[in-house]
């Protein structure tokens, strides 16, 4: 097995250029994991060190710590390099505790479900 040289790494689609960088990994279920890339393979299976999940509800967000994560490649949508110079989130967003974000998540889900049932009940009106 031969290892790619530095130029090949920079020019290829390989994730080698992302090793040891802080990344955001978007998953197919919509979750956003942050962490440092330790390892990867051709299927985009990745190992994240110091992983945390960034839960965003409206203007609130929380980074829930998870630890060392191995993510199966098929669940990966996108891997983005976080630019250290830039703000990770817009300044109007507030960091809250895990308990608060869970409450906000629940409230949002309930609001969404309610909207769903209301719409169902009104279906005979045939809007759209």
């Amino acid at each position: 097995m031969s290892w790619a040289g530095p130029d090949e790494i920079l020019l290829s689609t390989s994730l080698a250029g992302f090793l040891d960088k802080k990344l955001i990994v978007l998953l197919r279920d919509g979750r956003k994991l942050l962490g440092t890339l330790c390892s990867f393979d051709q299927f985009a299976n990745v190992v994240l060190q110091g992983a945390c999940e960034r839960v965003i509800v409206g203007e609130l967000y929380c980074d829930v710590p998870l630890g060392l994560y191995v993510i199966r490649g098929e669940n990966v949508v996108l891997i983005g390099e976080l630019d250290r110079e830039k703000d990770e989130l817009p300044s109007h967003m507030t960091c809250v505790s895990e308990a608060e974000i869970r409450t906000a998540e629940k409230a949002e889900k309930e609001a969404r479900d309610l909207k769903g049932t209301m719409r169902k009940r009104m279906e005979f009106l045939d809007f759209d």
Partner: peptide, 25 residues
């Protein structure tokens, strides 16, 4: 030099400038 087309809807992508996208998605 990426930018998300609907930035307001995806605030977590604000500081992403280089990214890898899996072909299957």
């Amino acid at each position: 030099n990426t930018r998300v087309v609907d930035q307001d809807k995806y605030p977590h992508m604000l500081s992403v400038r280089n990214c890898f996208i899996r072909g299957s998605v």
